[in-house]
C-alpha cells in the first residue's frame, strides 16, 4: 500500500494534540491526528475540571475534550482512532505506521501524554479489573456501600478519593509519606471529609483476593511493620509515566522517559519533530499547560515548514 502524505501528523489527542490541531488546521495545514486508543487523554478519566479558564462553573473532563475535538474538526482536522504502531524519523518525510497503513509527514507533533503508573505487584496485575482500578470515575460505581482504598498523595489521588466517597462506605488513602504533595485546597477538602481516613507512611505490598479484592497487606515505611486492611477495591493514583515507548532510541528522552525539548521550545532532538504536553512536561502537567505547549508546537511547526518545506 502506498503511503499517504501529510504536511502535519499529530500523534495523540489530549489538550496538547487537539490545541495543536486547532492551530495548524486554522493555518490550512490540514493536520491528521492519530488520536489513539486513549483518545482525549487523561481528562477522559476525570470528572469536574475546575481550573480550566473560561468555564466559571467548571466543566466535565470528557465534555472539555469533546469540545476541543469538535473545534479541531471544524477547521478541517482529520482523525484516525487507533494507536501508532511504529515511527521512522530517520529520513524526511517522516514515517508513521498505524498497523499496515503508512503515513508520511513533513512535520510531526508528538502529544502522546502519560498513563497511570501501577504499583508493580504481581497481585495487582492479576486483580486488575477484579477490584484493582486506575479509573475512579469508571469503576467507583461498582463499590456502592463497600470500603475502598486508594494509594497516592497528589491532587489526582485526593480528587479521586473525594469522588469515591459518593459510593463507598469509607475511603482509606494510603500514602507512603507523612504529608500529601497535593495542593492545599485538595488537602483541606480531603481531610475534612468524614468518609476519608488516611494511613500515613505506608505502602501496599500485596493485594489479597482470588476472584475479587478482599484485603491489602500494608507495610509501615518507618517501622517496617506489616498490617492488613480489609477493602473491596483498590484504586491506584501514584502518578504517571510518559507514553514514549514508540520513541525509545529515536528521540532523546530523559532518565524518566520524557521527551527532551529545547529550552522555551517544543523542538525535539530531530528537526521537524515537535513534542507538546505531558509527554515532555514532568513539572506542570495541567490541561492548560498542555494546551499552551500544543499551541507552541503548532506555531513552531508552521514556521519550520515555511522554512524547510
Amino acid at each position: 500500500m502506498s503511503a499517504q502524505h501529510r504536511e502535519i501528523v499529530v500523534i495523540g489527542s489530549g489538550p496538547a494534540g487537539l490545541t495543536s490541531a486547532v492551530y495548524t488546521a486554522r493555518a490550512n495545514l490540514e493536520p491528521l491526528v492519530i488520536e489513539g486508543v486513549g483518545a482525549g487523554g487523561q481528562l477522559m478519566l476525570t470528572t469536574e475540571v475546575e481550573n480550566f479558564p473560561g468555564f466559571p462553573e467548571g466543566i466535565l473532563g470528557p465534555a472539555l475534550m469533546a469540545n476541543m475535538r469538535e473545534q479541531a474538526l471544524r477547521f478541517g482536522t482529520e482523525f484516525v482512532t487507533d494507536d501508532v504502531s511504529r515511527v521512522d524519523f530517520s529520513s524526511r518525510p517522516f514515517g508513521v505506521w498505524v498497523g499496515d497503513t503508512e503515513y508520511r509527514a513533513d512535520a510531526i507533533i508528538i502529544s502522546t501524554g502519560a498513563s497511570a503508573r501501577m504499583l508493580g505487584l504481581p497481585s495487582e496485575q492479576r486483580l486488575l479489573g477484579y477490584g484493582v482500578s486506575t479509573c475512579a470515575t469508571c469503576d467507583g460505581f461498582f463499590y456502592r456501600g463497600r470500603p475502598l482504598a486508594i494509594v497516592g498523595g497528589g491532587d489526582s489521588a485526593l480528587e479521586e478519593a473525594l469522588f469515591l466517597t459518593k459510593f463507598a462506605t469509607k475511603v482509606t488513602i494510603i500514602h507512603r509519606r507523612d504529608e500529601f504533595r497535593a495542593s492545599k485546597i485538595m488537602r483541606d477538602r480531603a481531610l475534612a471529609n468524614d468518609k476519608i481516613d488516611v494511613i500515613w507512611n505506608a505502602e501496599v505490598t500485596e493485594v489479597v483476593g482470588d476472584q475479587a479484592v478482599e484485603s491489602l497487606v500494608l507495610r509501615d515505611t518507618v517501622t517496617g511493620e506489616t498490617s492488613t486492611l480489609e477493602v473491596a477495591g483498590l484504586f491506584v493514583a501514584i502518578g504517571h509515566t510518559p507514553n514514549t515507548a514508540l520513541f525509545e532510541g529515536v528521540l532523546d528522552l530523559d532518565e524518566n522517559g520524557y521527551i527532551v525539548t529545547a529550552a522555551d521550545s517544543t523542538a525535539t532532538s530531530i528537526p521537524g519533530v515537535f513534542a507538546a504536553g505531558d509527554v515532555q512536561d514532568h513539572v506542570y502537567r495541567q490541561a492548560i499547560t498542555a494546551a499552551g505547549s500544543g499551541c507552541m508546537a503548532a506555531i513552531e511547526t508552521e514556521r519550520w515548514l515555511a522554512e524547510h518545506a
Partner: peptide, 14 residues
C-alpha cells in the same frame, strides 16, 4: 459500559 465512563466512549467507535 456506562455513559459516565470516558474509556467506554473512546472504545465505542472502534
Amino acid at each position: 459500559w456506562a455513559e459516565w465512563c470516558g474509556p467506554c466512549l473512546m472504545l465505542a467507535p472502534t
